[in-house]
């Protein structure tokens, strides 16, 4: 691949004595949707979290190897971790609205990096809520707590909040697994629009979802990368026996 946005080399990750990721090598193309797929417990989420070094906060996790983002090794150089994380918006399985009102949820990322002028914040909040198709539903109650929103709305709020810090990459960890079909469809459509500007990496175990929106697919099984390639190759012409079995639904 030419100029991958993210390049993972020989990544090994241990939780205590248990090895979760085994010699992972992945390349992720820029401004495409990359889907990481595989059965539960295969290390998809862990791989995703090591990309923005959320693995740092757990003291029993030990990471070895290299992860290059824009050709910069984020594991082994002294990267400013808050700047690194701001390059990546995270959308988790369940939405976790911050314990504050809707407006402050969006403004949070901007405020902590020092943007405090009210006019600027007002504009940004409106812009990103519109981006996430939430503005019309919440514009009259920006000051009410974010936890009062429905779970689908909360997930869109989290998307808006993530976009508001102006990331280059969106990391999504089964972002539709807690949502109803309509909210899920909305998130999928949004991702397809967003890939024009962002590199999107999404973890899922729903094959149909992967078929619908993937440009590039990474298939993981028990901590190893079994196969990776463009969606077309992956779905139409899989090389590995395990991939074929998985695609036929013969797993588990």
């Amino acid at each position: 691949m030419e100029n991958p946005k993210i390049k993972v080399q020989n990544l090994n990750l241990f939780i205590g004595k248990q090895q979760i990721l085994k010699n992972v090598n992945v390349e992720i193309p820029e401004k495409k949707i990359t889907i990481i797929i595989g059965p539960s417990g295969c290390g998809k989420t862990t791989l995703l979290k090591s990309l923005n070094r959320l693995t740092d906060i757990y003291e029993d996790i030990n990471v070895q190897g290299n992860i290059f983002i824009n050709n910069e090794d984020i594991l082994n150089t002294k990267t400013d971790i808050t700047i690194l994380r701001k390059k990546m918006g995270l959308l988790s399985q369940r939405p976790y609205p911050l314990p504050m009102n809707i407006y402050d949820n969006i403004a949070y990322g901007l405020r902590i990096s020092g943007r405090k002028q009210k006019k600027y914040l007002d504009k940004r909040v409106e812009h990103y809520l519109k981006q996430a198709n939430l503005w019309d539903e919440v514009k009259d109650r920006l000051k009410s707590p974010a936890s009062a929103l429905s779970i689908g709305q909360q997930q869109r709020l989290c998307l808006a909040r993530g976009l508001a810090v102006d990331p280059e990459i969106i990391l999504a960890d089964e972002p539709t697994s807690a949502l109803d079909p309509i909210s899920s469809q909305y998130i999928e459509e949004k991702f397809v629009q967003l890939k024009e500007h962002y590199t999107i990496i999404m973890v899922t175990h729903i094959l149909r979802q992967a078929r619908r929106i993937a440009d590039y697919v990474v298939f993981m099984y028990l901590g190893e990368i079994i196969e990776q390639g463009t969606a077309e190759e992956f779905f139409n012409n899989p090389q590995q026996e395990k991939t074929k079995a998985y695609l036929k639904g013969l797993f588990n």
Partner: peptide, 19 residues
């Protein structure tokens, strides 16, 4: 997940704890 959300928005550990 809440702590991870705040961290991935670029908050430092102390900011996450405080806010």
């Amino acid at each position: 997940g809440l702590i991870e959300s705040s961290l991935s928005l670029g908050a430092s550990k102390w900011q996450t704890i405080k806010f």
